[in-house]
Simulated scan of single mutants.
Amino acid sequence: MINTLKFRALELFLLFVIVPISLVLDWPMEGKLTLGAFGFLYVILISVFAEHPKFVKPNRDKWLSFLKSTLVKFIIIALVLAVFVYLTTPEKLFYVIEKPKIWLFFLGVYTLFSVIPQEFLYRTFFFSRYQVFFKNKNLLILINAGLFSLGHLFFGNTLVMIITFIGGLLFAFTFYKTNSTVLVMVEHMIYGCWLYTVGMGEMLGFPT
């Protein structure tokens, strides 16, 4: 039963729609944390005992292609975000690097406890388990990005939803193109760390 399409469809809806929405409802934080923990544990167990997602090691050509395309996108996005912060909250522009040790420590914690779990859940697990429902590549990427954005609903910030949707599009496209968890984690880390560095971390709940 666990691998039937109907069960997977229900599972997708519960994990990626119901759980994120439930986290914004008015009920104890302990319950929300417990629900999130059980949800992620469920994903791990399904991955180990049923899904067996493949972790593709990118070769040299994939790395070079990825780095070239990511560099171009990053320069454009980094400039746009820096200008946005400068125009809206100039006092926050790069203010986090005034304490370099705390800044570097957070970047490591963010990568380990946010980037890696999110990319495992939203790209590696999602594509391995639910790609079967989407015959159209663009629809798959669009839905994945939308659900990734929905996963940040608890921040209660429209700008966060927009940024995470755009990020979701980039990450989903990268994973679809390369099938590499490593590359998409690196990409997510780059953009997430830049958001914090440029001064937009507060809206995402980053320590400031």
Rank of each mutant, 00 (worst) to 15 (best):
P90T: 03
T70G: 04
L10H: 06
K68L: 15
V132M: 14
P90A: 01
L150S: 12
E91I: 11
F105H: 11
E98D: 14
K6L: 15
N179H: 13
I190F: 08
L183T: 03
I162Q: 00
I97D: 07
Y130C: 02
S149C: 10
L150D: 06
L169D: 03
V48Q: 02
L169I: 15
E119Y: 09
L64Y: 05
E98Y: 01
A78R: 04
F16T: 04
F105K: 15
F125M: 03
F165G: 03
S47V: 03
V83L: 08
K68G: 07
I190S: 02
I76C: 02
F134L: 03
V85F: 08
Q118T: 13
S114D: 11
K137W: 00
I116M: 14
I143M: 12
L147R: 01
L45K: 08
F171I: 04
W27I: 10
R60T: 14
L142G: 01
P100F: 04
T124G: 02
V109F: 14
P58L: 02
Y110L: 15
T158I: 14
M189T: 13
M185N: 12
T208A: 13
G108R: 05
Y196I: 05
W63K: 05
T197Y: 04
Y95A: 13
P53F: 02
G156Y: 10
N3E: 12
L169N: 03
L87G: 06
T4F: 10
P207A: 01
N3M: 12
T111K: 06
W103K: 03
P28W: 07
T197R: 01
E187H: 12
P28E: 04
A37Y: 09
C193L: 08
F55T: 06
L147F: 08
A9I: 09
F74W: 05
I163V: 14
L64K: 13
I116Y: 07
L107P: 00
W103N: 00
L112Y: 12
K135N: 12
G167I: 04
P117T: 07
F154W: 14
L33M: 15
F38M: 14
V115R: 08
L170H: 10
L140Y: 02
E30Q: 13
P207F: 06
Y95C: 10
M29H: 11
F126L: 05
H188F: 09
F7L: 10
A9F: 14
Y110M: 15
S180L: 03
E202F: 09
K137E: 09
T164C: 06
K57Y: 11
P53R: 02
Y86F: 15
N179R: 15
I190A: 09
T124P: 00
I21H: 08
G168E: 04
L93Q: 06
V83M: 07
E51H: 00
V184I: 10
V19M: 10
F40D: 00
T88Y: 11
L64T: 12
K32P: 00
I77T: 07
P117G: 11
L79F: 13
T158N: 11
V96D: 01
I18P: 01
L153G: 08
L25D: 02
K73S: 12
M203E: 07
G199L: 03
N179G: 06
S47Y: 06
L41P: 02
L15M: 11
F206I: 05
Y176K: 04
L45F: 14
K62F: 09
I116L: 15
N138P: 00
R8E: 13
L67T: 12
E51R: 08
